[in-house]
Design a protein around this nucleic acid. Structure first.
Length: 578
RNA sequence: CUACCCGUGGCACAGCUGGAUAGCGCGUCAGACUCCGACUCUGAAGGUCGAAGGUUCGAAUCCUUUCGGGUAGGCCA
């Protein structure tokens, strides 16, 4: 559609210049003004003439009327002036002879913008905390992050995905103490991450105590944990070994989930990796005179920027969250030379990112404006906050298992002869969850309703995957046939389907601009709807007219390419059969 | 208290670089299988976009105020 808009813009510009030779207007500006009419019956594209009325000193109605006269281009079927709008209808021949062949030629590369050529982007996402449960609260960063990665790759960016594991901090002191006190090698080997989580929860409860039950807080246990973490920091071999073991157990578990989602990372450098890189940045801050001692802690005052101060060092001199993020950013800039660094985290961390981004700027790093925080809304479960303590939490692996089970149940009933059923059930089950999550704007809080997430009716993952399978099924029937070489678009459903596909690149660019995967999800829905309407209105494989049949089969093939391409942008697996 | 985010039909959401009768899904009601996979398709009812001002030829979209909900705010991450 970008090509079409450009052609129409040039035709309009030519017209404008013929009446007003001195009009300061470019084809790009006109293309930017072109919009989609609210109702398809008005046309495919509209040019509002209101803004031109000032420079041309004529009424919009007159301008539209003038422009509509003999506006010609290969892609224009008709141009009609209505209430100050120039409504343009795209030529069916152009759709059949230019758009469709382009999709068939480029296949899944169709619609790929080239804005990322020669550019590099680092994405920081997923980043679970070791030995803490990997639950549906982590779905956002994981799925949005990976989708942004795919979008950038599609646009030609070189990408580097980092899983910034929460693998350092006093929680490991706690875990080590708990392990020695209540755990055992055998129990952890058998129970895996669940056992680690259990130990972690247990020691936290012991430290906090329970006033209601009259159990006092255990300060000694807290002190012991701090001491063990201190030993770990000092390089105590025994503790280090335990730590490595805990990390690897957790990673193994996470990778199972990542595999189901088809997600891989280029790096698992976690917080621990940056511990020795912080002192240099702290020194730099000190040298620049940015550090201020306040109540014993070292802070960077940000009151000039209407923000609370950013804490760099605790009273005891140890580092904090922002310190590590700054050091990590400096390292990544030097190591990867990114043009953009994207951080996908919950919107609860907005202030934190705004603060340390500002500190990086104050430190004089000229790449501070290449740092981008992509926040997403808070996830609650069935209306209540997620909380490990109250048990209102669903692990990602359990959620996926639930969805897969449900799909299997349906398949047993509807398609019992399907080969590779387990694999397909996983693709559809996991896909349902991913699609449900990525349907809405990322910034909105989401109440994760299990019933809705596992619903397969309407705008859902199974609906679009079913549509994909249906297209594949038609193509399977005709795969070895020679088709008529001619193509012609004869009905509205065919034309609409092509017009939707022609919008793909624009939608990809919007998704990139806004860091918003849901733009792609919505596009997939639009395309699935258009294809299903086409499918019902037109015979495809059973059509007797040779040219029509060839066109429709190719239309189906094109849909398969574009749908498949868009699926991969939102971590949705392609299902040839369902 | 301060800052940021959200507030669109019964429910859950699109649309928000201002533009023509505000869209989709679920649910409700009424239809379509001698037809390539009915997890599909067609149609109906239902909202004036939290509220009030303002800017504009034109506002769900921009500005101000206000109400409701959420999040964050020094030694956790």
């Amino acid at each position: 559609m970008l090509t079409i808009k450009k052609r129409i813009a040039e035709a309009i510009l030519g017209k404008v210049l013929s009446v007003a030779p001195d009009a300061a207007l470019t084809a790009e500006e006109i293309a930017g003004l072109l919009e989609y009419p609210p109702d398809a019956s008005m046309g495919d594209l509209a040019f509002p003439c209101f803004r031109l009325s000032k420079t041309l000193r004529r009424s919009p109605v007159q301008i539209a009327a003038t422009l509509s006269e003999a506006l010609t281009d290969a892609c224009i079927e008709s141009a009609e002036a209505v209430n100050g709008y120039l409504n343009i209808r795209i030529s069916k021949d152009y759709l059949a002879l230019a758009v469709l062949p382009e999709i068939l030629e480029k296949k899944e590369a169709y619609g790929a913008p080239s804005v990322g050529q020669g550019r590099m982007v680092v994405l920081d996402y997923s980043s679970p905390n070791v030995a803490k449960p990997f639950h549906i609260g982590h779905l956002g960063t994981t799925v949005i992050g990976h989708s942004l990665r795919k979008l950038h790759e599609f646009a030609g960016y070189r990408c580097y995905g980092i899983n910034y594991l929460g693998d350092w901090g006093t929680q490991f002191g706690k875990l080590i103490v708990a392990y020695r006190k209540w755990g055992s090698r055998e129990a952890v080997i058998e129970g895996g991450i669940d056992k680690l989580v259990e130990l972690y929860v247990r020691i936290n409860n012991a430290i906090k105590g329970d006033p209601e039950k009259g159990i006092p807080a255990d300060e000694a246990l807290a002190e012991e944990s701090r001491a063990e973490f201190h030993k770990l920091e000092m390089g105590d071999e025994e503790n280090l070994e335990l730590w490595r073991w805990f990390v690897s157990i957790s990673l193994e578990e996470y990778e199972k989930t990542y595999r189901q989602l088809g997600i891989t990372f280029d790096s698992y450098k976690g917080e621990s990796f940056y511990t020795d890189k912080m002192p240099a940045e702290v020194q730099k801050l000190r040298d620049a005179g940015l550090l201020k001692i306040d109540d014993g802690a070292s802070i960077v005052d940000l009151s000039d920027y209407n923000m609370p101060p950013c804490l760099i060092l605790k009273r005891d001199g140890s580092t904090l969250y922002p310190t590590r993020d700054i050091a990590a950013a400096v390292y990544r800039k030097a190591e990867y030379g990114f043009d953009t660094a994207i951080y996908v985290t919950s919107s609860q961390q907005c202030l934190h990112f705004a603060q340390w981004f500002k500190v990086v700027e104050l430190m004089g790093y000229d790449w501070h404006d290449q740092l981008v925080h992509v926040p997403y809304g808070t996830v609650s479960l069935n209306g209540a906050k997620l909380a490990t303590r109250t048990g209102n939490v669903v692990l990602l692996k359990d959620l996926f298992a639930l969805a897969i089970e449900k799909v299997k149940g349906i398949m047993e009933e509807k398609n019992p002869d399907l080969v590779g059923r387990d694999d397909v059930a996983e693709a559809v089950g996991v896909g349902a969850i991913v699609f449900y999550y990525l349907t809405n704007n990322r910034i909105k809080d989401i109440n994760f309703n299990l019933e809705d997430a596992l619903s397969f009716d309407g705008n859902t993952g199974p609906y679009v995957q079913y549509t994909y399978a249906r297209a594949c099924s038609v193509l399977e029937k005709v795969k070895d046939e020679a088709l008529d070489g001619e193509m012609t678009v004869t009905c509205e459903e065919e034309a609409t389907l092509l017009k939707v596909m022609a919008q793909y690149e624009e939608r990809v660019l919007t998704a990139l601009r806004d860091y918003e995967p849901s733009v792609i999800t919505r596009f997939i829905l639009d395309l699935a709807v258009a294809f299903n309407k086409f499918y019902h209105a037109c015979r495809i494989a059973t059509e007797t007219d040779g040219v029509k049949r060839a066109t429709r089969i190719r239309l189906t093939e094109a849909t398969k390419h574009v749908l498949g391409s868009a699926f991969s942008l939102i971590c949705l697996r392609k299902t040839e059969r369902v």
